[in-house]
Structure formats: C-alpha cells, structure tokens
Write a protein that binds this DNA or RNA. Structure first.
Length: 430
DNA sequence: TCTCCTGCCACGTTTGAAGCGC
DNA sequence: AGCGCTTCAAACGTGGCAGGAG
C-alpha cells in the first residue's frame, strides 16, 4: 500500500550552512504520499488499465485518491496532477493484447489539474484522503474547460505534485515534490478495447451499475425495443463472459515479467529516463542540487514524452503548461490559517527557483505559463515566466554558489517509493 | 476491410431546491 | 424564524451501440 519509500538523503554530509533553511526544509523532505484504493488499481493494472477520453471530458476510474503525511500543518500547499506519457509510442489493441502501432503523436497541450482545495494548510491535506474525482480527461486539443488533454491509444501515468505555496502565483517560486505510482498507468482510449477492463469498470464503478449482469440489467432488456439491439447486447454479454473465462493474464504480461516491455522499441532508454525522473529522493535542504540538475539537462519527463524522436531527446522548445481545475470550485475551501505564523516558502524555495532561473537564463521567457483557472478566464502569469535573476532577485543570499557546486548525486532506487523534487515546470510539458 | 472516433441512448448516482414538520 | 428531514427532478456519469471517417 505504501507507495513512497522512506526518504533518504542522497547526500552524506550535513547541508551547507546557507542551505540549512531551518527545520521546515527537513520536514518538507519527509512528505509521504500514499495511493488509496491500491488493490483496485492493481486489479486494473494487471489487466492493463484503460481510461476513456471524450470530447466533453471523462472522469477517471478508478479515480486518483491519495493521502498525505509529513506536511507542515500550518503551511499552505498546492496539489497538482498532470499526465506523463509512459513512452513515445502509439498502441493498438490486437488479438487481446496491446501492440506498438508506431510513434506517438506530438504532445497535446500540457495541462496540470489543480486540486480545488488548493491552496490549503498541511493540516487540511493530512486530515483526510485527497480525491481527484473531478479530474477529467479529454482528447479535444481545443478544450476550453481545462481538462487534461491526452491522445487516444497512448499510455500515460498521473504524476502528483505537492507544492508548498501560499497561492497559485507563488507556485512558480516554490519547490515541490512529485510522486508517481506505477499502478496508475493507463492507456487512453475512446472506447474500451479489453472486455475484461469493461467488466471491471462495470463491477466497481457505481455509475455503471446499470450495466451489471445481476438484477438491474433486466430493466435495460425490457426497455430495449429493437430485436437487433437485444441481439447486439446478447453478443456483448457473451463476449464479456468469454473474457471472464479466459485465464488471467495481462496484455502487458511480458513487460511485468521481464521488468521491461519487450514490445516497444528503444524501451530500455525510455525506462531509464523514467526512473531517473522518479527515483530522486532528497531532502528539501538539498533542493538546489536537484534544481540545478533538472535545469541544466533535458528533463527526464520531457524525454520520456518525446520518445517521438526515438532517441529520448527533445528540444527545449517551450510548451505552454496550464493549470486546470474543476469549474465548480468549492469556495468554502479552508479559510485563513488558525495557526501561528505561516511557514511560508523559505529561502530554500527561492534557491530552487534561482537555480532553475539560472539554468534557463540562456532561454529567457522560455516558460510562458498559462494558468487555467476555474475562477476566471485563462490568463498568462507573468510570475510564472522564467525571470532572469536580475528581474527577480532571490531574497536570500543563496547564490550561484550552488550552481557552481552542483553535483550529480547518484540516484537511490528503492523498491516502492517514487518521488522526486525539483522546481515546478522546469521540466514538464515540453 | 479495418481501426478508430463520435453522437446518441438508457440507466444509475449525485445534487440541490422545495416542501414539510417541529 | 430557524433547523432538520424527506422528496423529487434535473444534472451528471457510465458503457453500449451504430454509423461515419480515414
């Protein structure tokens, strides 16, 4: 159940004095995220999870639900989710299994789903499970509702970001931690391909009760007037039953057994990059290093997503990430803090930004972030654009020392935990 | 011919307004 | 007037299906 492994320092000695941003930094590094309904996710994952995407947007099922611990109760956090391509391929469903059908299509506009409670105190996030029920997926690249845009027949996995920030505008300045769960990977489809997935969805999704075999489906039979329709339904049910009889196997079986998929060319490269992105435990105090790493080299996720090139490389051409959220944002979100002085993003946060900014200094304005807000019209955020250090001098004597002394620490690969820590949007979506 | 996408359908769940009683 | 409970209809979410596009 526990998906996040213990955080371990990948830095043997104490942090430099200038990096010792107080206890917060260390606490921040102890954030733990746990995926709820793991058994359900695993059940789907074993078969090969599929998620329907539609033009008006479709919810995920199972939906993303996590619990958090290790947050600073009195500090405000923002929770984000985005979808990352698993690889650079397009797939097709052929003879009861997924096969590579070619290179992936160019990445659609990248969007990040903002949890409607954001920003909220750490105590709020930790007191109960956090549901992303209203997150919707769409294949409409012109979508105006802020849904996450995906390509059909492509594989993705959700990525959860925890950002210590007072508001959306300061996200840009905050260091965040990213969590992923292997069980949540899925194939985006416009119609279910695997009948076993269909059956699982019907069995577990309350909204699909009407399609269950037992009892309730009688109504459907009665209501159907055309014999042809009844015939089709009968055929469908037969298919489902046949599917159930089949021995339990996953269309990704080879992948799981061998640890790597064998049906994807250049698979190993993609996976290496993928792991490099995820398995980067490091206390917040060491963020500058991480920030620098992500800033100076092509982002892992971008490389993964860009498998289009086949070589795992892609350009640094800016994409336009957006933050989206459900329109029906609950205005009754947690109010003003009842805690004492807020633990605002400390100097360490700025240090992260600093490094990112410096890393991007060679491409000014590379990040023309747009924020898709349910509270108003989409608006560009100047604060989110990549400022030069001169434009936004860090209010802390953290300087280029960190960049100059940046060291690439070896990644620690745990058996479960998958998280990383780096400046927001220095990587994603391009 | 095949694959994939789209619009529509019927059904169940959720939500919020309206009505009622205390 | 205020509160809590119940009812009910509209909105929403779901998978199945037919038909169209490429």
């Amino acid at each position: 159940m526990q998906s996040i492994r213990e955080l371990k320092s990948n830095f043997s000695g104490p942090p430099p004095a200038s990096m010792a941003a107080g206890p917060d930094a260390y606490l921040q590094g102890s954030i733990r995220m746990t995926l709820e309904d793991l058994d359900l996710w695993k059940t789907f994952h074993e078969i090969g999870t599929e998620m329907i995407i539609t033009k008006p947007g479709r919810r995920m099922f199972p939906h993303c639900k996590v619990s958090l611990s290790g947050l600073i109760p009195c500090a405000k956090y923002i929770l984000l989710v985005d979808m990352v391509p698993e690889d650079g391929f397009r797939y097709k469903w052929n003879k009861e299994k997924w096969e590579v059908a070619g290179k992936a299509e160019p990445q659609p506009p990248c969007r990040t789903y903002l949890h409607p409670d954001s920003p909220a105190l750490g105590s709020h996030w930790m007191k109960q499970s956090i549901s992303f029920l209203k997150l919707k997926l769409t294949n409409n690249t012109l979508d105006q509702h802020g849904h996450i845009i995906l390509h059909s027949m492509h594989r993705y996995h959700p990525r959860f970001h925890v950002v210590q920030a007072d508001d959306l505008f300061s996200v840009r300045w905050s260091v965040f931690q990213t969590f992923t769960f292997p069980e949540t990977s899925f194939t985006a489809v416009t119609a279910y391909q695997n009948t076993r997935i269909t059956k699982l969805k019907i069995d577990h999704n309350p909204f699909a009760k009407g399609f269950r075999d037992e009892g309730t489906s009688k109504k459907r039979w009665v209501s159907m007037t055309g014999a042809v329709i009844a015939l089709h339904t009968a055929k469908t049910e037969l298919k489902i039953k046949d599917a159930v009889k089949e021995e339990r196997y996953s269309p990704w079986g080879a992948e799981r057994q061998q640890g790597v998929r064998t049906d994807s060319p250049a698979e190993a490269d993609a996976r290496d990059i993928y792991n490099a992105e995820q398995l980067v435990p490091a206390p917040a105090a060491y963020q500058p290093y991480r920030a620098h790493e992500y800033g100076k080299s092509p982002s892992p996720s971008s490389s993964v997503g860009s498998g289009i090139s086949g070589s795992g490389r892609r350009s640094f051409e800016p994409r336009v990430p957006e933050i989206s959220a459900v329109p029906d944002h609950d205005s009754s979100k947690p109010g003003p803090s009842h805690c004492g002085p807020q633990h605002l993003p400390g100097p360490q946060d700025y240090s992260g930004v600093l490094n990112m900014s410096m890393a991007q200094a060679g491409k000014p304005g590379v990040i023309g972030h747009h924020i898709y807000s349910p509270y108003g019209s989409e608006q560009p955020l100047a604060q989110w654009s990549g400022p030069g250090p001169a434009q936004y001098p860090p209010p802390h004597p953290l300087t280029a020392d960190y960049t100059s002394q940046a060291v690439h620490h070896g990644y620690h690969h745990g058996n479960v935990g998958e998280w990383s820590q780096y400046p927001l949007f220095s990587y994603s979506c391009w």
